[in-house]
Design a protein around this nucleic acid. Structure first.
Lengths: 214, 214
DNA sequence: GTCTATAAACCGATAGAC
DNA sequence: GTCTATCGGTTTATAGAC
């Protein structure tokens, strides 16, 4: 069971998580982290043993706290003979909820940035991240895709999953240049809704399902 | 005009480019770079003045050597009254060529990885990268989108561009976990073709154009 | 548990011999 | 143009006082 951190440990995890999400494990020095957390430098080693362990702990903290939209739960009750219109509506809701989860202000922005960044930084824990965190949802998603359109093969399912994950990855990590291109200050709700709507429609169209009515 | 580097300079640019593409400016130390290039450490400072200058030069090298598919050229001759089927076919070709350009083996893999990584690493040159390298193509793409479907607004155009760029960004930077998920060794031509096909169809469908016949 | 002081390793940059 | 040796700064980690 996950031991909920408190006090100095919690402050360090929150400060470090934010900084690691911004620029990776090698980005911030432990001085910067300690300063942001408002604790002494030596506290990192006292509480976590090393910077790398602190990184791993920020990760554990996010995994156990984020209330992600899990395909495993979302598509749990889908039967073999789902109606195309129902499948389309369900898929639409799934993509919309996944987006609004990742870009909502209900949880700190660094939660998903940390996870997305970990996907690209080669690290020893990458394999377990893929196998334990992503794999189950990917497989549930692919299974649903094949129920919604039995002529789709496994690779089609994965590619559709990548269409969604890829967009979230892009909007998470390219925030700065995207906002620069759009000449905006920040993502607003309308923009994220539009991006989610587009992604959902893309997935539904490519799969050959009818688009949900407006 | 761009002065073509030779000898030690060229060896350093190639070695550094590969390493920077892998893990950013702060990833490799100059010792690692020099070793990979097979030259002395001091050569970096002698030829480039600093590590940061070497980074900037690897960038200039890529920009001037990659034969990217530019939307500016691709959609140059499109008139106001383009036929939807023609527009669809042109868009399809554009996405396919952009993908096969970015993932072909005709140029080193680190070329596009370096550019894609630069998009997410906050750096002083990010703004000029966006404005000078990406902006012109984005605007040409958006202009085409609005010709292909006059009811699309500017934001719709940008979002469709992000659909394509986002997928390329994702497949470029998440190569390792993607291959891990797929249990593959490397991207093969068939896979990239499929991903490109899917992305092209997604863009065309979302824009409301007819899909090109198989 | 928290602090200061410092060790040990590494970094980018450079002086000076060849 | 290439090398060795080294400087000054920064990093993570830790020993020891409180």
């Amino acid at each position: 069971m996950y031991q909920e951190p408190e006090g100095t440990k919690l402050a360090l995890i929150k400060a470090a998580g934010e900084l690691f999400a911004e620029s990776g494990l090698d980005g911030p020095g432990i001085r910067t982290i300690a300063e942001k957390a408002g604790v002494n430098i030596a506290a990192i080693n006292y509480h976590f043993g090393s910077k790398e362990n602190l990184y791993a702990e920020t990760f554990r903290y996010v995994i156990s706290h984020e209330k992600d939209v899990h395909a495993v739960d979302f598509f749990k009750e889908v039967g073999e003979d789902i109606d195309p219109c129902e499948a389309s509506a369900l898929l639409y809701r799934y993509v919309k909820e996944t987006f609004s989860f990742h870009f909502s202000k209900k949880q700190p922005r660094w939660f998903n940035m940390l996870v997305m960044r970990a996907l690209q930084d080669p690290s020893p824990s990458l394999q377990s991240l893929v196998e334990e965190v992503f794999r189950p949802d990917m497989e549930a998603f692919v299974a649903f895709i094949q129920k919604a359109n039995p002529s789709a093969n496994t690779q089609d399912g994965y590619l559709l999953d990548f269409l969604v994950v890829g967009q979230i990855f892009f909007y998470s990590l390219c925030r700065v240049p995207i906002l620069m291109a759009l000449k905006k200050e920040d993502y607003d709700k309308a923009f994220i809704d539009k991006a989610a709507d587009q992604t959902a429609k893309a997935v539904i169209s490519v799969l050959g399902l009818p688009l949900p009515r407006e």
